[in-house]
Amino acid sequence: MREEFRYPGRGAPIPALLAALILLPMGAAAQAPEEQGRRLFEVHCARCHGLDGAGGEGPGLRRENLRRATDAETLREIVDRGIPGTDMPPASSLNTQEIGAVSDYVLSLGVVARVELPGDPAAGRELYEAAACSACHLVNGEGIAFGPDLSDIGLLRGPAYLREAIEAPEAAVLPRHRTVRIVEAGGAEVMGMRVNEDTFSIQILTPAGEHRSYRRSNVREVELLPAESLMMSYAGQFDEGELDDLVAWLASLRGRDDAMTGEPE
């Protein structure tokens, strides 16, 4: 009577899912705890938190400090009991040992090693400003918010991903941020980033920063463009050394240095 689990939404990155398909080992007892934890994470947690823990419908877990799980014991309790009032369910099908293994794995996700990168972050920062990246991205609150906030992108993404996102941004678009082309009833075309949608409506953010909401029944066409990004490709605009610098700058972004001081929610 497995009564179906929560559907992960349209957000799961399919190519990544398939690419990351890993053999499910036979028998839990035979595996190393970290391997077991990863496996359990993929089966029970990845639907919402992403296969790599970077987040999806649920929050990203590749952080040094998890907002609710302030220590290992609290994390185990959250895995065990869920978070009432949220979509986080209790892991009622896991035993104590398995809860420990998956919790340890989640903690390990937060340890993102600072690898030595070839580039110069300071030079990268200058390139970032010269290329007007801040016309679409925030870093520590500075810039224009349209594309993803990059303040902690160095924690969330590895250098190879960052390089690809600069040269081939369409490959880096999360499905929930897909580019959408809408043909309005009068024939006008609007491009924007998908913000939300359901069976009857779709909400987009235009490059002008304007939210628009459409009834599907009131427009001529809604087309998802999974192979397009609203971000232009910077392939060929930087030489190898400059790309190294830019990636080094982005990789150095590991959260706001002016630690936010509001009251916890």
Partner: peptide
């Protein structure tokens, strides 16, 4: 009192 499953699934969302 524990899960007796013998496997699992990964859903395809596309």
């Amino acid at each position: 009192g524990t899960p007796f499953l013998g496997g699992g699934e990964r859903r395809v969302v596309d």
